[in-house]
Amino acid sequence: MIVLVISLALFLVGLYAIITKRNMIKVAIGFSLMEYAVNFLLAIVGFRPGALPPILKAVEVGKVYADPLPQALVLTSIVIGLGVTAFLLALALRLYNRIGSFDLEEIQRLKG
């Protein structure tokens, strides 16, 4: 339960940063926080108290094993998160080179 609260709190902190911050780098950091929150939650889903690593030689009755699938999911989502962060920063840098500012309100050209 406490894990759930922590990761949701982290998720909301990230969302808050994205919504309120005008600096594009801070927006990218907000995304990283949200990704960490979800990855953390996913990793914890596979946790079992007192579990063994899920490397099975023969099935032993009565032993508890950790769930390996969430770890595979987390790895995939970390890679996706890397791509997203890299591309966000690349866009921010290209905009900075064009306009000379990371401020989203100063670069605003598009309207209605």
Binding site: I18, M24, V27, F31, V84, F87, L88, L91, A92, R94, L95, R98, I99, L104, I107, Q108, R109, L110
Partner: peptide, 15 residues
């Protein structure tokens, strides 16, 4: 600049 800005906005919402 307009296209980069549109891309940034789109990316934030999409992500």
């Amino acid at each position: 600049p307009e296209e980069l800005e549109a891309g940034f906005k789109y990316m934030v919402m999409g992500e």
